[in-house]
Simulated scan of single mutants.
Amino acid sequence: MELRTVATFLRVTELQSFSRAAEQLGYSQAAVTVQIQQLEQELGTQLFERFGRRIQLTEHGLQFIPHAQELLRVAQNAKTFIRQGAQPSGRLRIGTAESLSISVLPPILSAYHARYPLVETSIHTGTIPVLFDMVRRNDVDLLYFLDKKTDFPEWNKVLERPEPIVFVAPADHPLAGQQQIPLQTILAEPLVLTERGISYRYDLEQLLAARGLELHPFLETGNTGIIVDMLLHHAGLSFLPRYVVQTYLESGALTILSVDAPSIQMWSQLVYHRNKWITPQIEQFLSLMREHIGTAQQPDQTL
C-alpha cells in the first residue's frame, strides 16, 4: 500500500471531490481515480459511492479514515526520527476573522516564525460563511473564528475562549464613568461599527429590535483597525470584541461604557476538518496557540 495513495484518499475525503483533489495534489483526475481504485482493490472493499459527479464515503470508507491517518502519522514519525533536529517546513494556511488577525494573531505568528522560520504562513480573512467553505474545500488548514459556540460533526475543535463584546469610547468621552447608560443615549451618539452580518453586530441588532430600536452608524467598515483609529480621534463610539481594544484600555486611551443592556458574548474558536492530515507545521502551531490562548477544549484527534 503506497503512502501516496493513502494521502490521495484523505485529500479526496477532505474535499469530497476527485477533481478538486487532483487539482490540489497536481495530478490528473484520471490519476486520482486510478489511485483510489488501486486502494480499493488492495483493501478488498469500496471506499466511495459515485453518483455522477458526486461522491460519498461508504461505511468502510469512513472506517478506513483513522487507519489512513495513522499510516501517515507513523510515516511522518519515521521521517522525524531520521531527521532529528530538522525544523518543520512547508505551508501553513490559516483562515480567520479580520479582527483576530489584527488583534490576537500577530504576537503568536511572530513567536511561531521565530521558532519555525522555514514555514511559509498565509492568512486568509473573510466572513463566517466564506471561512466555513474554505475549511470544507481544504483551502485553509486551520480556522480561527469568532462566533457563537459552534460545533460541526466534521470538525475537530482545538480550543475555544469566551470573548466579551463591549461598548467602547475615548476615555475622556462625556459618557465615560456613567453607570447603566440607556441604549437610547448610546444610539444618539455617532457610531462607528463593523459591517452588517458580523456575528456580534447581528446580536446587537436583534437586542435593539426587541426594544423597537435601530442602529444608524455614520460609518461601517470591516476593518476593526480603522474603527479603533476613529475612536482614538474622538470620532464616536463603537461596539467591539474586548480583545480588539484591550491594549488601549490598559493604556487609558479608551474605556468601556456601562450600558443598560444584557451583555453579548462570542467565542473565539480554533478548528480543523476531522479528515485533515496534521503536518508537523500545523501541529506546532496548534501547540503554540494552546500556550497563548488556553486549552479549553482538546481535539478528538491525537496530535
Rank of each mutant, 00 (worst) to 15 (best):
M1P: 07
E2K: 15
E2D: 15
L3K: 08
L3N: 12
L3A: 03
T5K: 13
V6E: 10
L10D: 13
R11S: 04
V12D: 02
V12H: 06
T13R: 08
L15G: 05
S17I: 04
S17L: 03
R20L: 06
A22W: 11
E23T: 02
E23C: 00
L25D: 01
G26E: 07
T33H: 09
Q35T: 00
Q41A: 08
G44W: 15
L47M: 06
L47H: 11
F48W: 12
R53A: 07
I55H: 02
L57Q: 13
T58C: 05
H60E: 13
G61L: 01
L62T: 15
E70D: 14
V74Q: 15
Q76W: 14
N77H: 13
K79Q: 14
T80P: 00
T80L: 05
I82K: 09
R83P: 00
G85A: 02
L92T: 06
L92M: 03
G95C: 03
S99Q: 03
L100T: 15
S101W: 01
I102K: 10
P106T: 02
P107H: 11
I108K: 10
L109N: 10
H113W: 05
A114S: 09
R115G: 01
E120S: 06
T121D: 06
I123H: 02
I128A: 01
P129V: 08
L131F: 10
L131W: 13
F132H: 13
D133R: 14
R137M: 04
N138P: 00
D141N: 09
L142R: 05
Y144A: 01
D147E: 11
K149C: 01
K149T: 12
T150F: 10
P153R: 11
K157E: 13
V158C: 03
L159P: 00
E160C: 05
E160H: 14
P162R: 10
P164E: 03
I165L: 08
I165S: 01
A169R: 07
D172K: 07
A176T: 14
Q178S: 04
Q180G: 00
Q180H: 10
I181W: 11
A188H: 14
L193C: 06
T194Q: 12
E195C: 02
R196L: 03
R196Y: 10
Y200H: 15
Y202R: 15
Y202L: 08
D203S: 09
L207G: 00
R211P: 01
L213T: 08
E214V: 15
L215T: 14
H216R: 15
P217S: 06
T221V: 08
T221A: 04
T221Y: 12
N223I: 04
I226W: 06
M230G: 00
L231Y: 03
H234C: 01
H234P: 00
A235Q: 15
F239N: 02
P241A: 11
V244D: 05
V244S: 00
V245Y: 09
V245R: 05
T247N: 04
T247D: 11
T247Q: 14
A253E: 12
L254F: 04
L254H: 05
A261L: 06
S263D: 15
I264N: 05
Q265K: 10
S268T: 14
L270G: 01
V271W: 10
V271E: 04
Y272S: 04
H273D: 10
R274W: 05
K276Q: 09
W277L: 05
T279Y: 10
P280D: 00
R290M: 08
R290N: 14
P299H: 13
D300S: 06
L303M: 12
L303N: 13
